[in-house]
Nucleic acid binder design. Structure first.
Lengths: 339, 339
DNA sequence: CTTGATGGTGCAATCGATTGCGGGCTCGTC
DNA sequence: GACGAGCCCGCAATCGATTGCACCATCAAG
């Protein structure tokens, strides 16, 4: 309700006041040239005077669209509770800005893609014209199914699988390579990787890591020990207990799957009496805002979130216009700091 | 479209197949007892077979509601670009969960409350039944205006102003006091406050800070110097330049307005050769996930985000049901760590 | 047999917009 | 004065649901 009276003003009200039909009001407000300029002006003024706002639900029903895009955060890859990685939030926020710029709204949903009904209430119920999924996670079957339904869909994730649907993502292989090569250049020879490789993006980063190592004639370190499910919130704890079981440090360089994992690892190393970067040099991933505030300031691989968000939106809108959009891989770059 | 054919199934389709009227279908699907059990079952089966999803837009139009709540992040208080404080994201995510649990959708918007049209496209356009605003910011006039329109509205912010509208927030005065008293107990006597007191919540924390100091017979330190606009992303830089202009450290304890500010400050102190907590003990605010990962692990004041989110949702739904909801202040607690 | 419940369904209006088609009006032209 | 051409505008259907009211059938009671 726009006023305490509870009665919201509709086109009918304007039509009555202007002494014209609703058709004319509709056309006038949409600046249809078929309407006389004087009439149009008069209607616009009345509308303004009444503080009229069009009922978008009604309009969208008639036009068979929603002018809304759903953004789905896959919580399955997170703790299951909430997703606390600031990277996600930045992304969502920028997507929201981009969508608004195009006159679209953003319907926010955080759910596990594993749930049977995870998307039925979005597109099928006509709440959104398209879906942007952030973080495909381990299983992409549900996404394939959604794609098969023909609905507009864009995914932020690994672009390496040549998925049939449209994917936007960073060049994670290159990122993993950059991180590893940086460590190699620092003279590190025993470089380990920390992260949950069941996630496609992490798997790609790991690929870049092994590529770089192989080219340098080196081998990965302690894969069995370190390649488990390393979520950022458990990274510290797990690494710490692992370190305490070991006599001496098996690595002098660490490629972390995310900044959060990197920070947790550094914390664990420090707790066990090791110094960063003296004993171990660590490279993170994402370049979240606090990477620069952390001590030591995190050397990390930066993803261009802003460009990613713009692309995601552009591609989803393209598909909503019934056109085809193809996948894009974004370049990454290394940010050298102190770790 | 739920199928590649492009034709989505409506109640009319079901009615035709079942040999009944649309009214009956509608009532059957809503489990209206007026419908014969056999008929209802048959209709349900047909609906299931056709993979029918109700068009929520149409339903909401008829029922004059949206079953959607808009969550507005006030970006004015942030950098203007995006809001990177993970605290916000946690809040939004939990609100989304809560809303979904009640069958509501979450329309996400990040905008500056200063913009003239900041909410017209939300309620007035009937895109949402109510608005949750996170971070009222410096100006609450636009919120008062919105409130005056009679629309359901809940704000996360300072509960100390006795605002006419419904506010949910932490006990920031108590939080500021807890932080300060902790430092006093550590034997610190020259305690400074860092944060932008133009924000109501920060102002309240500062109030608790001065209260505690006064009771201890002490005075604030370097107010003029430190009470400027300390955003987390500039905290480090500003404090660092300030420190370099000063001979000796004017404080041995620091109450920061947020964890992000605390981390930035610690970074600045370390860069200038001071040790935390040896030279300066620092207390943060929020207890964001990485507070525990930071080095040193941040002593901080924890806000109960989960309960906050639940309350925000509960109160907005209450108002949507045309009932009155009043403000609530949530308790906070100190989390002792290493800083 | 008439009347009155009672249970199960359908008719049609409604929510607030959009739009194809048709029609009135004004002019210009022959 | 008649006629065709534009220019404006209204009628009514439509999008996909909900719901008050009327209606019919069945059956028991009087």
């Amino acid at each position: 309700m726009t006023s305490k009276t509870g009665a919201s003003v509709s086109m009918a009200d304007i039509a009555r006041l202007a002494g014209v039909s609703e058709s004319t009001v509709s056309r006038a407000l949409n600046n249809n040239p078929a309407i006389n300029v004087d009439t149009r002006e008069r209607i616009h003024q009345i509308a303004h005077k009444l503080n009229y706002r069009m009922n978008m639900g009604a309009r969208n029903l008639r036009l068979r669209r929603t002018h809304t895009v759903a953004v789905v955060i896959n919580t399955e890859i997170q703790t299951g509770q909430s997703f606390t990685d600031p990277f996600m939030m930045d992304m969502v926020s920028m997507i929201a800005d981009e969508l608004n710029r195009s006159g679209y709204s953003l319907l926010f949903a955080s759910t596990s893609l594993n749930r049977k009904d995870w998307h039925t209430h979005l597109i099928a119920s006509r709440r959104a014209d398209g879906i942007i999924i952030i973080g495909a996670g381990k299983y992409d079957l549900p996404i394939k199914n959604l794609y098969a339904s023909g609905d507009p869909l864009v995914v932020w994730g690994s672009t390496r699988d040549k998925a049939p649907y449209c994917v936007v993502g960073s060049d994670n292989v290159q990122g993993g390579r950059l991180a590893t090569e940086y460590l190699l250049k620092q003279g590190r020879t025993r470089i380990a990787f920390l992260g949950d490789t069941r996630h496609p993006e992490v798997r790609d980063r790991h690929q870049g890591y092994t590529d770089a190592l192989t080219e340098a004639g080196l081998a990965p370190v302690n894969e069995k020990l370190l390649l488990k499910s390393f979520r950022y919130d458990s990274a510290q704890e797990r690494l710490e207990t692992t370190l305490r079981q070991i006599e001496s440090l098996p690595f002098d360089g660490l490629v972390a799957a995310s900044d959060m994992v990197a920070m947790g690892s550094i914390k664990a190393l420090q707790n066990c009496g090791y110094r960063v970067p003296d004993d171990v040099s660590v490279v993170g991933y994402d370049d979240i805002p606090m990477a620069n505030v952390f001590t030591p300031a995190l050397t990390t691989v930066r993803q261009d979130i802003e460009r990613g968000a713009k692309l995601l939106v552009k591609k989803i809108l393209t598909q909503i216009k019934e056109q085809k959009a193809n996948s894009t891989t974004l370049p990454v770059r290394l940010v050298r700091r102190e770790s």
